[in-house]
């Protein structure tokens, strides 16, 4: 399972979520790739990110879940465990 997180430098919520996704990926040994909403616009266009950031796309061969905006560590753990 892989986490693809799309965020941007100017978005406070993304700054809050970044360490949480790092911790999450270490805890469940998931690969984590970070893209920037502005600079990597071409790469992430296929994900059709809405207008709320950050967005975390969970991929297991293909996209199985999408987390939008700010979530607490507790909520993140629950989501990942439900997908394991």
């Amino acid at each position: 399972m892989e986490l693809i997180v799309i965020s941007s430098v100017w978005c406070p919520s993304c700054l809050i979520m970044h360490p949480r996704y790092v911790e999450l990926s270490q805890k469940y040994h998931l690969t984590l790739t970070n893209y920037d909403y502005d600079t990597d616009a071409s790469i992430i266009s296929k994900y059709h990110v809405g207008d709320i950031l950050p967005v975390c796309i969970i991929v297991k061969d293909e996209e199985i879940e999408r987390i939008i905006g700010e979530k607490s560590m507790k909520e993140l753990n629950k989501i990942i465990e439900s997908l394991m």
């Binding site: 941007s8 100017w10 978005c11 406070p12 919520s13 993304c14 909403y37 502005d38 207008d51 709320i52 950031l53 950050p54 939008i68 905006g69 700010e70």
Partner: peptide, 18 residues
């Protein structure tokens, strides 16, 4: 207010400012 995140409004305007 749907999700608690930052809404990305008019990206073009932001590009110019960046």
């Amino acid at each position: 207010k749907s999700a608690d995140g930052c809404t990305v409004t008019d990206a073009k305007k932001k590009q110019k400012v960046f």
